[in-house]
Write a protein that binds this DNA or RNA. Sequence first.
DNA 1: ATACTTATCAAGAACTTGTCAAGATTTCAC
DNA 2: GTGAAATCTTGACAAGTTCTTGATAAGTAT
Lengths: 236, 236
Amino acid sequence: MKTKDLILIVEDDPGISKMLQFTLTQDGYGCVIAENLKSAYRLFQVNNPDIILLDLGLPDGDGKTLIKNVRSQAMTPIIVISARHAEQEIVAALDTGADDYVLKPFSGIELSARIRSAQRRLLGIIPSQQHIVCGELVLQIETLIVSKNETILKLTPTEFNLLKYFMLHPNQVVTHSRILKEVWGVGYQHEMHYLRTFVNSLRKKIENDPSRPQYIITQMGVGYRFYCQNDSISKE
Amino acid sequence: MKTKDLILIVEDDPGISKMLQFTLTQDGYGCVIAENLKSAYRLFQVNNPDIILLDLGLPDGDGKTLIKNVRSQAMTPIIVISARHAEQEIVAALDTGADDYVLKPFSGIELSARIRSAQRRLLGIIPSQQHIVCGELVLQIETLIVSKNETILKLTPTEFNLLKYFMLHPNQVVTHSRILKEVWGVGYQHEMHYLRTFVNSLRKKIENDPSRPQYIITQMGVGYRFYCQNDSISKE
DNA sequence: ATACTTATCAAGAACTTGTCAAGATTTCAC
DNA sequence: GTGAAATCTTGACAAGTTCTTGATAAGTAT
């Protein structure tokens, strides 16, 4: 069995919490249910859930207290589910540290999507993709293979690392010293000549016209900018 | 004027986008506005905004395309603002990679709170880009990029420093010697000629009609004044 | 009109970046 | 281990930008 992500449901109405539990179990999550603040906080500490669903109106106090307590020690996504439609309630909950605010009655399907979104953010922070695509260029991180329009390019290790760094920072200006530090290592910040030489040889391999580069663009006095347009707008 | 976080507003209804711009400027953000997908993607690439507000119904296609394109290279928070209440629309947008989905008509105050929530999540994970915004001009401090509308301007280092100084001191008269001291360094206070030459070349690049400048305005006998429309709010 | 300030243009100097190739070092196969 | 091949390092020079400077035109105030 796969390990499931755990969701802490904080809700005093058994009807709703049972319904939530049913839906979320269907979606493949594990659930723990708290019916009041005290038990919610204890379950949070004990179980370290991946996501918290929180109803604000609880018998022993305002749910915002829980938000505050959780935020003081973790970034666990908190999705508030509430019947309180008042604007200042929503704002207060969000500003206390909630990630999202869903109004009752809510759609189970939408809630699932919002849970997925919260999860994705948590994971997506370090996007560990297998390959990076920039225009005609495809770089496979694992296999160290770079291809341009179906043809495999023959890059040396340093060239590959440099290109990888560029492709991981598309459309941003990166300074000479930054590139040198990231690709060659600390202590190489001033070896500009390395960078020039390797940019030169990279251009020869990836650019259509190396004398008029369209990928590696030099930013005079600063560094380089890797231009990348993944344009699917024109199509579909 | 301080540097601001930049918000890209993608919205084809000028009434709504103007309203958003007003609210967000009040809140201390810089804004750029796109009225269609194509321009939105370009502005995203050029300006590296900190947050994207996206209306799904655009003249040249579905906003989800933009979500896809943005997500292929960055984790920039995307808040969808839409009149489409249908559940499957919301789910689709969230699953494509949107961070939040706000229904029209929306409350400005709630939107601000949702923006703050999105920003808070990013804190410490992705260092926020610092921008200075003046009318159509957006200057990115760390990447040394200046853009006007959708195009990146090609400025030399000295031109950039001069423009940065101007944009950091908008709507105030700065004397020749002051600019020279700040931009070129102590000892250059009397090199008026430098200043004239560089103001000249800057005007050629940033002004719509360099012979009738609207940004860099000469203050006879004193110095220059950099005119900036949307600076009425934030003071240092 | 005159004196003064500001704008424009262009050419050479100074600096930054690009190119190429030879020597040094590492890697890999045998 | 040894030698061949590939890769990295280094230097010299070319090409390209940007800065500095001077000359001249345009604009303003008295």
